[in-house]
């Protein structure tokens, strides 16, 4: 952790991530107004002292709506990634450990899935499952699984030929012990790093789905949906697009920078 904070990327990433986490945990309670309260007299206003980030087309306070939407949006990203990484890693580890024909079959199927652009694939799944937050989350998880499987597999493969694994094999250890105690702990680094970076993708895909009307439904305060709803009023008050858009960007950047720093910290070659 000290090493992460010492690099500029890591420091900025950690600060952004801290802000985002606080918003996600406490957002609804520190919001100054009710996110759904209409105020007809103060519609589409720019930032002012009463409304720090301005108001939307119904006069709802943007700041409150963003804070209120933080848990949904961020938890969406975290859960979707966790699910995708979990499933993907298990598949990847199985392929990497089994090797041979099992590996070949699994990886060829995953290659087929990887050949499809991520967003298109998500859209395809959502059209099957129908709109809604849970469905969108599942869709993102399914999209992530093949990529994560590939990373988990390559990580396992690189560890599997190390001499301490050979030593365990020569000792006659059981396969479960070799995988669980010798291979996995050492193969976990790249998987953790990759999943941190992927959270930001998940948030962005979630926002995109919300924007397209396939994710969260109104009157949810999910950030992507906020951008979509405000689209037609963009020229009268750009703030109602800029504000949620910027928070999405900041959150994604926070996870991205943190992930990068984490990767550097895990890489023994970079530590002198």
């Amino acid at each position: 952790m000290r090493r992460i904070l010492r690099s500029p990327t890591g420091l900025i990433g950690s600060i952004l991530l801290a802000i985002v986490t606080v918003a996600a945990l406490l957002g609804p309670w520190i919001a100054p107004y009710d996110p759904q309260a209409f105020d007809v007299t103060a519609r589409l206003q720019g930032p002012s002292l009463t409304h720090l980030l301005g108001t939307d087309q119904y006069g709802r306070d943007l700041m409150s709506r963003i804070l209120n939407g933080a848990p949904t949006t961020i938890l969406f990203g975290v859960f979707a990634t966790a699910l995708g990484v979990g499933v993907g890693s298990v598949i990847g580890v199985i392929a990497g450990v089994a090797g041979g024909r099992t590996d070949g079959i699994i990886m060829r199927i995953l290659d087929g899935m990887l050949a499809m652009p991520e967003l298109l694939f998500t859209l395809l799944i959502v059209t099957f499952l129908g709109g809604g937050s849970t469905q969108a989350m599942l869709a993102v998880a399914v999209t992530f699984a093949p990529g994560m499987a590939r990373i988990a597999r390559s990580s396992v493969l690189s560890v599997r030929t190390r001499e301490y694994v050979l030593a365990a094999t020569a000792r006659g250890e059981s396969r479960a012990w070799i995988v669980g105690r010798e291979v996995l702990p050492n193969a976990l680094g790249p998987i953790i790093v990759e999943s941190t970076i992927r959270v930001s993708f998940a948030i962005m895909i979630g926002a995109t789905l919300g924007f397209l009307g396939l994710g969260a439904q109104p009157p949810s305060t999910e950030w992507g949906l906020m951008v979509a709803e405000a689209r037609q009023f963009m020229f009268r008050n750009p703030w109602c697009v800029i504000a949620p858009g910027a928070v999405i960007a900041i959150t994604a950047m926070g996870f991205n920078l943190f992930g990068d720093a984490l990767r550097d910290a895990f890489d023994p070659k970079r530590s002198r």
Partner: peptide, 8 residues
């Protein structure tokens, strides 16, 4: 360097 598990 590689014959001992670095996490044990």
């Amino acid at each position: 360097d590689s014959s001992l598990n670095p996490r044990q």
